[in-house]
């Protein structure tokens, strides 16, 4: 066991776990931040997407010791206090989720996109979002929601 200090959503969390424990298990099972989901464990589904120093990352393959030196970790819980981040509002307006399990990751990826590229083209959105799987098949509405949040929505058939 080793002691680490994590900076998550601008709060400090001490945690004692074995070296090599994934950030995902630390957040979910030790700190109770369960909005970030486990889907595959090999960074191929993106359900665990969060931000580290503003960049999107897959928590399932990040060992805790790699993010315990003051890196700013942001999860879905830290996106807004009332669930009213512009991307979250667009997500509701588009009625994007079905089962909803992948959508924390989808939203975190979309926020990262818009923070670096506020008015992406449709192809840029598809490319950037390609790493986050949705089995319910909500991609049409995810695309619509990102375009709504970006203010670029023209007309997406849905």
């Amino acid at each position: 066991m080793a002691k680490y200090t994590l900076n998550v959503n601008d709060e400090t969390y001490p945690v004692e776990v074995a070296e090599g424990t994934s950030l995902l298990w630390v957040l979910r099972e030790h700190l109770g931040l369960t909005g970030t989901k486990y889907g595959c464990g090999i960074a191929l589904c993106g359900a665990c997407t969060l931000h580290i120093d503003g960049q999107p990352a897959k928590a399932c393959i990040i060992p805790v010791e790699g993010v315990a030196s003051g890196q700013r970790i942001r999860t879905i819980e830290g996106l807004s206090e009332k669930g009213d981040h512009p991307v979250q509002k667009a997500w509701i307006a588009a009625q994007a989720p079905q089962c909803g399990f992948c959508h924390s990751g989808q939203i975190m990826q979309a926020v990262a996109l818009l923070e670096s590229n506020p008015r992406p083209t449709r192809e840029e959105i598809k490319t950037y979002m390609n790493g986050i799987l949705c089995r319910c098949g909500t991609y049409m509405r995810i695309l619509k929601a990102v375009e709504m949040a970006a203010g670029t929505e023209t007309h997406v058939e849905s």
Binding site: I76, G83, Q95, A96, G100
Partner: peptide, 20 residues
């Protein structure tokens, strides 16, 4: 609007995986 969607966009919707 579907009733459970707000929970599903702010990370509070509970799946069994999230039970502690």
């Amino acid at each position: 609007p579907r009733t459970e969607i707000p929970e599903k966009v702010n990370g509070t919707a509970l799946f069994a995986q999230d039970i502690r």
